[in-house]
Write a protein that binds this DNA or RNA. Structure first.
Lengths: 258, 258
DNA sequence: TACTAGCATGTTAAGTTAACGTCAATACGT
DNA sequence: ACGTATTGACGTTAACTTAACATGCTAGTA
């Protein structure tokens, strides 16, 4: 329920404020069982917000602000799952699918095992780990310089690798949406994503509503460049109508059952 | 000790034979403490040979253990370690090191953490897993088509990625040695390795004695093309002298203490 | 209203890990 | 040679984590 998400935010804030906290302190501070704390921090750790130690948790070593920023974006697992499930509508067996390094695309990867046979291309280490050792699935990893923050391969080697390939469908995400433009934090990531755009026939952008009202530095592309933009219903009717008026091929995804 | 490696091989064989074994069964079967079994299987799991479940271990979900990378790691482990330790003589901090997809090069990777800072390039998934998340280490993964048998990325994408890079040192191995020529089983792997040769200033070949008296289909390169050929003493004096007469820069590595 | 499904949570038993101590083999300086 | 670190394997225990099952709450539905 919503209360669980709030509790997770409280826990994340608490840990981020103190830097490192023993699990028993969390148990005492929040007045719930040790098991429940474990379940919460497991999920936060899976989202990359916290890191479990053995009896304690710390914030991920990538700067407090960014961690605090990141966990709010990734909290909504239900939204990502709903987006991922809808994205499957645009993927058919036998196609070549390219996935970027976003956690949303990673969620799509978990569902792709039901659409085999398939060729999948990605620069995400997390997604690569999911797709190795899978039968009936041709997997191509985009190499490049490993970047810890994104847990992905980027850089010129990656861009050139993308340029050699062609995909039927690209599934990607962005850091922020301002007006009808998608933005990304890192210029090197932008170049990789733009190369992916150029190498794909159909382009699908997945955005949860937390991507609005945020700021990122570098322009990725205009929303009208995508064949489909999947957004969760949280973005609001006004904004949805504005985007459609601007020519964006928007499709709203309901988080709950249809 | 050597005994520990043998014990790990015994455990691996036992688990591979039965498919899945409970940890307590291993404790009883080998007559050591539960903790020791844990330590053994942790290492095997890290090598990708086994997978820990929770109270049990299984073999990795991939059909071909004999020829697969995972099993090769445990074969001739003492020899590979000796070769790897000697190979460190040719690597200095700050250099760019390229490693192929051989298990021997993987053994070198485990030792590289002591030579930081370093830039490491590889197409091996096992080696990549070792080198991600390491501070002071610039890691570049060579992408390409994932190949289950080698647990590595190969193909034209990989070859082109290699061609964009330059390394100070290449550490590689071969499937077989016949006369003064190194052979490889798979033509696609040959092309990647040849690209690696062209992209490296100093080339080092690591071969354990099991590589002699074997047959592989495709020519990799002549042994005289390497700046150093490290071989274990098992290859025999006669063969060593013949190679040196042919101009091979051979260095014999002792497995045991002198 | 009653029924059902889906979560969040608690409880307990089984399993795992960290930390420390012992022992043997190896390296090193004198 | 000799004693002295050093290293790695192994065991023991206490702390910690996980899986599995049970309970209760909430929302949607007949």
């Amino acid at each position: 329920m919503i209360k669980a998400d709030e509790r997770r935010e409280e826990i994340a804030d608490y840990v981020i404020k103190l830097g490192q906290v023993r699990i028993d302190d969390l148990v005492e501070h929040f007045g719930v069982s040790r098991m429940t704390i474990h379940r919460h921090i497991d999920r936060l750790a899976q989202q990359g917000v916290l890191r479990k130690l053995h009896g304690a948790v710390t914030v991920q070593p990538s700067g407090l602000y960014e961690s605090a920023f990141r966990y709010r974006v990734t909290v909504n697992r239900a939204e990502k799952d709903a987006l991922a499930r809808t994205a499957l509508d645009y993927i058919e067996a036998g196609q070549v699918v390219m996935l970027d390094d976003s956690s949303t695309a990673n969620a799509v990867a978990t569902l792709l095992l039901d659409v085999k046979p398939l060729t999948v291309i990605t620069n995400s280490v997390a997604t690569a780990a999911l797709l190795t050792h899978v039968d009936e699935l041709d997997f191509i990893c985009l190499g490049g310089q490993y970047h810890n923050t994104y847990n992905a391969y980027i850089g010129i080697v990656c861009e050139n690798a993308v340029a050699q390939l062609r995909a039927n469908v690209l599934i990607c995400s962005a850091s922020a949406i301002i007006g009808t433009t998608a933005f990304i934090q890192d210029p090197n990531v932008v170049r990789v994503k733009q190369a992916m755009m150029a190498a794909s026939v159909k382009r699908i952008l997945l955005i949860d509503h937390a991507k609005f009202d945020r700021i990122a530095l570098h322009v990725f592309d205009d929303l009208t460049s995508f064949d489909v933009v999947l957004a969760t219903e949280g973005l609001g009717d006004a904004r949805a109508q504005a985007l459609e008026r601007a020519g964006v091929k928007l499709r709203i995804v309901k988080t709950k059952a249809p």
